[in-house]
């Protein structure tokens, strides 16, 4: 995708973080207990084993056990529980 690449180059040149320039999600993990996902596009699936979150390109899958959506705001999702894996699909 040349447009995306070009944008990334501009972002690197100006040292602007990618999540601002390219509209990418910012994921903060606190150990395996908490995951904060900023810049999301909504929830696709939720059950105690899997949480799938829509992001600007594709989706993000958090798998684990006893997952709980601690809170949901238009800009941020907080997932708590025993996180095993974070994967981009």
């Amino acid at each position: 995708m040349p447009w995306q690449k070009w944008l990334k180059r501009v972002a690197d040149l100006l040292e602007i973080p990618g999540d601002v320039m390219l509209n990418l999600p910012r994921i903060v993990l606190v150990g395996n207990l908490q995951a904060f996902i900023e810049n999301h596009r909504g929830i696709l699936e939720y059950n105690p084993q899997v949480v799938r979150v829509s992001i600007s390109e594709g989706e993000l899958e958090i798998s684990g056990e006893n997952l709980v959506l601690r809170n949901i705001l238009p800009e941020e999702i907080c997932v708590e529980g025993n996180i095993r894996a974070v994967a981009f699909r």
């Binding site: 939720y46 059950n47 105690p48 709980v68 959506l69 601690r70 809170n71 949901i72 238009p74």
Partner: peptide
């Protein structure tokens, strides 16, 4: 804009 929290199955 409805704030939801502690969502669990």
């Amino acid at each position: 804009g409805i704030f939801l929290w502690d969502i669990y199955r």
